[in-house]
């Protein structure tokens, strides 16, 4: 039957391309048993990598969050010329290959870069140190939160905020009491995606990191190191932590879509269409 054939093809395709790699990570990670797994993830260098990854995400995500809210407020609540150009510019980091993203910061902050001499004289370390990793991560995850909030705020319109204003609320009160509750699920959604990408970024961080063990290696870099030390089980063990993070992200995403149906792709399309009809 056509139906069964189609379902079978779909499941086979997804099974081979999505499920098998995911499974491979966990199977290889546990190949030497739980004891070895535990040692691999709690070993000092691995632990340093975990802490660095968490630190970088803890800085990058809030930075992009503030930006995302600001951009969404400006774009969603006001009319001005050049709006769609601005939106496209915000999307630019999506089009940049990670290695180029990393190289950019070396060109600016490296010893022979624009600010290199100045930074060196001040003994400030940007590239090959944590600040460089944070910058590269911020760049790569730049659009995530903004892209979630902009259409959401556009769709929600100004009605609620204007009512609040007419009742005497200040700008800040408007934002905290009225806007934020309306966008909270979209916000969480964007933060979730931004965080997953921030913690998993490899290419850009690899270029700016310096790979100093225990100091400037994030989890993805540490996975590469273990892999290169023939320590495949440990590499997959650390990788499995990232895979677990991915699964949690997926679960969170599903839950949020259930909570706020506007986040689902179908709803977004309808919203885009309705909005354009109104123009």
């Amino acid at each position: 039957m056509n139906r069964l054939l189609l379902i079978a093809s779909a499941l086979l395709f997804l099974g081979v391309f999505l499920v098998l790699p995911l499974l491979a990570v966990f199977v290889q990670a546990l190949a030497k048993g739980f004891g070895a797994y535990y040692i691999a993830v709690s070993e000092p260098m691995a632990w340093a990598a975990v802490k660095l990854t968490l630190l970088v995400a803890a800085i990058a995500v809030p930075l992009n969050l503030v930006f995302g809210i600001a951009a969404a407020w400006a774009i969603g609540k006001f009319e001005f010329r050049g709006k769609s150009a601005l939106i496209t510019l915000i999307d630019l980091p999506f089009a940049v290959s990670p290695v180029i993203a990393g190289m950019i910061f070396i060109l600016i902050f490296g010893t022979h870069g624009w600010f290199g001499g100045f930074l060196r004289a001040q003994h400030v370390h940007v590239v090959f140190a944590v600040p460089g990793i944070v910058l590269a991560t911020v760049f790569v995850t730049f659009p995530f939160i903004a892209r979630e909030l902009i259409p959401l705020m556009q769709a929600q319109g100004n009605a609620d905020e204007e009512i609040a204003r007419s009742l005497g609320a200040t700008g800040w009160q408007c934002f905290w009491r009225v806007t934020l509750p309306n966008i909270r699920w979209g916000l969480l959604y964007g933060v979730l995606l931004c965080n997953a990408r921030a913690m998993g970024e490899f290419g850009a961080v690899s270029v700016v990191s310096g790979h100093v063990r225990g100091l400037t290696n994030t989890m993805p870099l540490h996975v590469e190191i273990l892999y290169n030390e023939y320590n495949y089980t440990a590499a997959f063990a650390v990788a499995s932590l990232l895979a677990l993070l991915a699964l949690l992200t997926l679960a969170g995403k599903s839950m949020l879509e259930w909570r706020q149906p506007e986040l689902r792709p179908a709803a977004r399309l309808r919203r885009d269409r309705t909005r354009r009809e109104q123009i």
Partner: peptide, 26 residues
């Protein structure tokens, strides 16, 4: 079906390096 639907987004969430070593291993 809901599980299958959710897993479509795995490539969004999984770090590229993890995907890389997993695919190479496979």
């Amino acid at each position: 079906k809901r599980l299958v639907d959710a897993i479509i987004d795995l490539p969004f969430a999984l770090p590229t390096a993890v995907a890389g070593i997993a695919l190479t291993a496979l």
